[in-house]
Design a binder for these strands. Structure first.
Lengths: 131, 131
DNA sequence: GGGAAAATTGACGTTTCCGTAAACGTTAAA
DNA sequence: TTTAACGTTTACGGAAACGTCAATTTTCCC
């Protein structure tokens, strides 16, 4: 019994706006059903929206995200397409791995900086105790 | 003997453009010395540029990056500033940890998709062999 | 010292990702 | 039934992060 959602259900659920969701549809990232004029979102649509928003948070552009979403519903009998997706997917994986490494580097540096600040702060507060 | 760089040295070194570097200066992220009219970049400037570009790749906005850069040269005698930086740094760390988790999730999903595609492809090619 | 190469400033253009508002139709609740 | 809330399309706007082009310096090299 796949659930149904209105556009504002989803907007609230994922803390975004209806304008944004309609914009994603304009770009072809979502294709909700219509009842009358109104958009009806399935669970599949909901999951796609979730993926889109996560992708955005991670700095991917919307056309990159659209391409990756398309990988999930390509024709599984087209050998050429399969090969292409595997190749592009490997590229994306390499890119993601680098991004993770970069983030871990930033993390380390921030931790060091934090420790440094903490030591300075400790000195200062001990100094204050002496008076 | 701290090295000196021209703007195009740095542009080439980090695969960006002089326009971009000047733009970062406009926003206050870099403050190179001048000799006559021209900009001269020190090693410190170079490292800052490297950090900026890495931050950009990771999806941080330039004003976020500027704030984080400022942490490296604040007044170490100002207890309030120290506390503030530690607090903000902790926030940033939490945010980075979440980003890493998200990226690892995307990574897993891409790997699964890749395996799925690979299996489909294997079936297809075995099918071809039979003929 | 003269000309090519490199750098500078200023202005405007572009792309991405939405926000906002107008003007209108639809649905639900009192 | 009416009225408030919700949804739709269309259009324009706007910030962020640069690209591009033109008009001037500035510098380097022979």
């Amino acid at each position: 019994m796949s659930k149904q959602y209105t556009i504002s259900d989803l907007a609230e659920m994922y803390d975004t706006t209806t304008r944004t969701i309609r914009y994603y549809e304009e770009l072809g990232l979502l294709q909700p059903k219509r009842i009358g004029g109104r958009r009806i979102y399935s669970d599949r649509d909901r999951v796609r929206l979730k993926l889109i928003l996560r992708g955005r948070r991670l700095g991917f552009r919307l056309d990159e995200i659209r391409e990756m979403l398309e990988w999930y519903d390509l024709d599984p009998t087209e050998v050429y397409q399969l090969r292409e997706v595997i190749r592009k997917g490997d590229e994306k994986l390499a890119q993601i791995d680098e991004q993770i490494r970069d983030l871990q580097a930033v993390r380390e540096e921030l931790l060091e900086l934090r420790d440094h600040m903490q030591r300075l702060l400790d000195e200062k507060t001990r100094e204050g105790e002496k008076s």
